[in-house]
């Protein structure tokens, strides 16, 4: 297992070069080569191939005829696509603030070393490990008329539960509720770890300054986790922008396309109608929207590193 004498072969008979164990060497490339091969063929190439496809009238196997920006024009003339963009933003608006605020609330309440707090933390995070299939199944059972849990609860008060997933006004809200239920664990945990990084002596100093609990919360705790709050918001925007499973499995995008997000539009277009070029164009628009949020995340985390 000895190091081969690379220097010996480098220069022939003349003065041999001294060994530099930190010099760039091609054989070191072998360590990164396996990953980079997959990275190049399954991420970099598809990324550019996707852009290429978006300019073509493509089908499953080939890129077909070049059509320029026609796919993009078709998208913006398609009321269902415009509706899906609106739906996506509406969904993000429904879920992200709720996730951030409920997550923060739970973190503040459960940031204790008691056993009950630990159990509750575990409970609130547990839904996060379930798959979207199970989560949507659970919530369809909750929302289902007559047999559903919601109907049972309304029944206790002698009321009739609304048909959440069938009602045009409520369907997206129903999906949002299931999503918040599914995703609440992560923001809570992020807030908890931020809270635990606040130095204890600040609280001791505040106590010496006779600050009461709410003053401490407003003037010390919340300002200390401001950046985490922004980070949680951005992470959740990126995640929730990619809504697909919940909408597909709970409502199929209905009623009347009112719960169809961009990703579902892409799925319908590319993998059900096999209009690959149009689907690719829609993907690029989604990519652009997510990239903006990802860049914001990069800037926030970077500022954190500088501080």
């Amino acid at each position: 297992m000895a190091e081969p004498r690379t220097a010996g072969t480098a220069t022939a008979r003349s003065r041999r070069k001294s060994v530099d164990i930190y010099a760039p060497q091609w054989r070191n490339f072998l360590f990164v080569a396996p990953y980079l091969t997959i990275f190049a063929t399954l991420l970099v190439f598809p990324l550019f191939w996707g852009i290429w496809l978006s300019f073509h009238k493509a089908d499953t196997f080939s890129s077909g005829r070049f059509v320029g920006l026609d796919n993009y024009f078709r998208l913006f003339r398609d009321p269902i696509f415009m509706q899906s963009i609106w739906n996506t933003f509406y969904f993000v608006f429904l879920t992200v603030p709720a996730l951030a605020l409920i997550g923060l609330f739970l973190a503040l309440c459960l940031n204790r070393r008691t056993r009950s707090a630990a159990v509750l933390r575990a409970l609130f995070f547990s839904s996060s490990v379930l798959s979207v299939t199970i989560v949507t199944l659970i919530w369809r059972i909750v929302f289902i008329p007559d047999l559903g849990l919601l109907s049972m609860v309304y029944g206790l008060f002698g009321a009739q539960a609304p048909a959440f997933l069938a009602d045009p006004h409520l369907a997206m809200i129903g999906i949002a509720i299931a999503t918040v239920w599914w995703c609440i664990g992560l923001p809570m945990m992020l807030f908890l770890s931020a809270l635990q990084q606040i130095p204890q002596d600040i609280y001791e100093a505040a106590a010496l300054d006779n600050a009461n609990r709410w003053q401490t919360l407003w003037s010390i705790t919340l300002p200390s986790i401001k950046r985490t709050f922004i980070l949680v918001i951005i992470i959740q925007i990126v995640l929730q922008f990619q809504l697909f499973g919940q909408a597909w499995l709970m409502t199929r995008g209905g009623p009347n396309n009112l719960t169809k997000p961009i990703v579902l539009y892409i799925y319908n277009t590319a993998f059900q109608r096999w209009d690959i070029g149009l689907g690719a164009a829609a993907s690029e628009i989604l990519f652009l929207l997510i990239l903006i949020a990802a860049m914001a995340q990069y800037l926030v985390t970077r500022r954190k590193a500088d501080a």
Binding site: G50, L53, T60, F61, Q242, I266, G279, L286, F287
Partner: peptide
């Protein structure tokens, strides 16, 4: 190369799905 790999973190699955599906068909 490392910077390019880091940039790969910002690419969402949906941006490459269709092309990937086609490649896997080939």
């Amino acid at each position: 190369l490392f910077v390019i790999v880091l940039l790969g973190l910002a690419v969402p699955e949906q941006a490459v799905l269709i092309a990937r599906h086609q490649i896997f068909s080939w």
